[in-house]
């Protein structure tokens, strides 16, 4: 043991380890290992860096892959050609009619606020589509059942504090 300080440490703190150290046990190493190591390290250093760090990924062109790719390409080309020839397909076929929209709005009236209802009305007027039995001068809420309208306004009034209400009046 070259290091006297270490020898002292081991003797005082770890007698078993001290004895093992003195006997110098070492496991076996294959014969000629270090000569072989030099060759292998040298070979790795001589190999191009790009070839080692970025391994080339081989693309395999199997017949099944080629057939699947070709089929997909033909299918997409056909769909594109079909839609270009029939532009109306992407426009109005699936759109709901005005009557259906109106029925939806009335059945979900509680979910709309006053501003939305006004927008709906104004939009209907702008498009020249007057609601059935409603003219431009008439109350826009005429078609809404009175009971529903009262409940809705009561709800708003409950949410407003007295001071704000006085200011509004």
């Amino acid at each position: 043991m070259k290091n006297k300080e270490l020898h002292k440490e081991l003797k005082e703190q770890a007698p078993v380890l001290s004895k093992l150290k003195k006997k110098g046990y070492k496991p076996s190493v294959p014969d000629g290992y270090f000569e072989q190591l030099r060759k292998e390290v040298r070979a790795q250093l001589d190999a191009p860096v790009s070839a080692q760090e970025r391994p080339v990924r081989r693309v395999v062109f199997s017949p099944l892959r080629v057939a699947a790719s070709a089929g997909l390409l033909i299918g997409l080309s056909f769909l594109l050609f079909y839609f270009l020839r029939n532009p109306q397909l992407s426009k109005t076929e699936n759109m709901a009619s005005a009557e259906e929209i109106e029925a939806y709005v009335f059945s979900h009236i509680d979910e709309f606020d006053e501003d939305m209802l006004l927008e709906y009305y104004v939009a209907g007027e702008t498009n020249g589509k007057e609601a059935e039995g409603t003219t431009q001068e008439e109350d826009p809420f005429q078609s809404i059942p009175d009971q529903e309208l009262d409940e809705y306004l009561d709800g708003i009034l409950d949410d407003i504090d007295e001071t704000t209400l006085e200011n509004l009046l």
């Binding site: 440490e9 081991l10 703190q13 770890a14 007698p15 078993v16 380890l17 006997k23």
Partner: peptide
């Protein structure tokens, strides 16, 4: 660190009856 490591290794070897 070395002191703690020595103690642990020594204890292990004693328990394994590695008295040489």
């Amino acid at each position: 660190s070395f002191h703690h490591a020595l103690k642990k290794v020594e204890k292990y070897l004693r328990e394994a009856e590695m008295y040489c």
